[in-house]
Write a protein that binds this DNA or RNA. Structure first.
Lengths: 305, 305
DNA sequence: AGAGCCGCTGAATCCTTTT
DNA sequence: CAAAAGGATTCAGCGGCTC
């Protein structure tokens, strides 16, 4: 409860708080230690091979080499995933290389079925052209952040993919767990399902980009998604069906924080002890975690050692 | 001017109004009649091979056969496109087959460079989960139309792709032609470019789906995008640089209407004379067209015969 | 008079059963 | 066992009705 969790040191090899554990290890090595079929959900955002300055990882390899490595990750995830498990893979494409995300998806698609493609929208303009006649709903013009692009041949990208892979392509989802209220109020009381007043959110997820405010001014982590993204993935898969969740590229720990908030057993890997330390700090800063009995079933933890 | 354009008959072989012409022919045959490098912009939405009830076209062929045909279309477009031309290809994927759009892109990518990927968003929910604390801007929850899906394993799709292909991948664009106003007025004076008060719209385009208000009750065309979509494509390419535009699958003629409104020389093909007639009716209904000198340069029309 | 409820229709569909 | 056909489903929009 109110117990003060000690602040982790600057570089750590592992960290634990509640049902969430972080281990400093390479993703493939970490996954190799997990039991076959033991993981309900994997949510992750791997290095994009775009030359981002990860510290311990050379993020610009020949394309074929990078894709082969991604394929290996896909096979490793396939092995640890339970038959009804879900693998949510967040990938973006830089404007200069729009094929990257498709290539990654195809590579992972050799091991798993692509069941859904979700579109993470970071910014969107709702109005038409400024010269158009106003379309009613005035005021709202644009929402969210984006990263401008200097070139005149590319429009800037305010979008990333979240590929939803499963072993069979037939895993049932809990669509209303991230549902949105009905648009037409007259539908609210009409149907059986409508008891909740919610409908399916669809495959376009608007989530303004979260810029991580580093305490230290050194090296911010380049590839991090907002905590809501893994949270929505967990919920969409169905919280009751999650016995164990993994992020093999946990980075600054957004997925770990989401898991901690939901009381889910979680294991995160990262090759970089400093990123892991920052993730641990963010975890330690969480005010309190749900009690263990929030989990519907006791977690069966594979030895993460 | 106020001249009443005669209403086309039910089935037509060709139709013309102003700078816009429609011809009933197969897409490949029509493209074959155009001169090499004579087209500035191609905007189109081909059949998706999802079994739609087109009358003169069998829309469910083996995947490999369909993709080979799409590849042929790509080569034909490549041939007629000018060196600085743009090919905007609208494709969606049904939830059941998320690979479709990627496969189509890859096939066309054999002939042309994929310069941008635009995301046409038909519907989006702006708020977070209903259980979340309100995020300020209350009221707005969801905008746009979408198609519900009766499945527990798929979320519904409110998204389609617009792939922007060019011969070299280096075609300069007129990004501010579809720009959106700056969010922060203080940016207005901060940058030189901001003289227009507009910024790049980015690659996520929100366009509510145009529901055909079933004018005739006969067979509506399943594949129609809102007129704003081709309009934005034309503008993004740069209106001054368009000497001739083509849509080889013109359908109900949204692209033709956009071209007519902008005063662009345009040629549309469709294999089905009845669709073409409906497109002609929609064209004839336009109140008036811009005068010819609106076009910056006189159009050089290839013989469309 | 307007908020609330109900019926109807249609949408680049999904699922099951049948040849 | 691939392919076709019919039934099932979801939910926005509109029109009509009630109180």
């Amino acid at each position: 409860m109110g117990v003060r969790t000690p602040t982790p040191s600057r570089r750590i090899a592992r960290y634990r708080r509640g049902s969430v554990e972080l281990v400093a290890t390479d993703a493939l090595a970490g996954l190799a230690r997990l039991d076959h079929g033991s993981v309900s959900v994997v949510v992750t955002s791997p290095p994009y091979n775009t030359g981002q300055p990860y510290s311990l990882y050379r993020d610009r390899r020949p394309r074929s080499e990078y894709l082969a490595w991604i394929g290996e990750v896909g096979r490793a995830v396939r092995r640890v995933l339970s038959p009804q498990g879900s693998f949510f893979l967040n990938v973006g494409s830089p404007p200069r290389d729009p094929w990257l995300a498709f290539d990654v998806a195809r590579e992972v698609g050799r091991s798993l079925h692509l069941q859904n493609v979700l579109h993470w929208v970071k910014s969107i303009a709702l109005g038409g052209l400024p010269t158009d006649p106003p379309t009613g709903r005035a005021g709202i013009v644009a929402v969210g952040h984006y990263r401008p692009v200097a070139s005149s041949r590319f429009v800037h990208s305010a979008h990333e993919y979240v590929f939803h892979f499963t072993p069979t392509g037939t895993v049932p989802l809990d669509r209303l767990a991230i549902g949105v209220p009905y648009q037409d109020a007259s539908n609210l009381t009409r149907w059986r399902r409508a008891g909740t007043g919610l409908r399916c959110r669809g495959n376009v997820w608007f989530l303004p980009y979260a810029t991580i405010q580093r305490r230290e001014r050194d090296r911010p982590h380049p590839a991090t998604f907002p905590e809501e993204l893994p949270e929505w993935c967990f919920r969409l898969h169905g919280l009751e069906r999650i016995r164990f969740a993994v992020d093999p590229f946990v980075g600054l720990g957004s997925s770990a924080i989401a898991a901690a908030r939901l009381g889910l057993p979680f294991l995160g890997f990262d090759i970089d002890p400093e990123y892991l330390a920052e993730a641990a700090r963010r975890l330690a800063r969480l005010p309190r975690l749900p009690s263990a009995e929030r989990r519907v079933r006791p977690a069966i933890r594979p030895r993460p050692n």
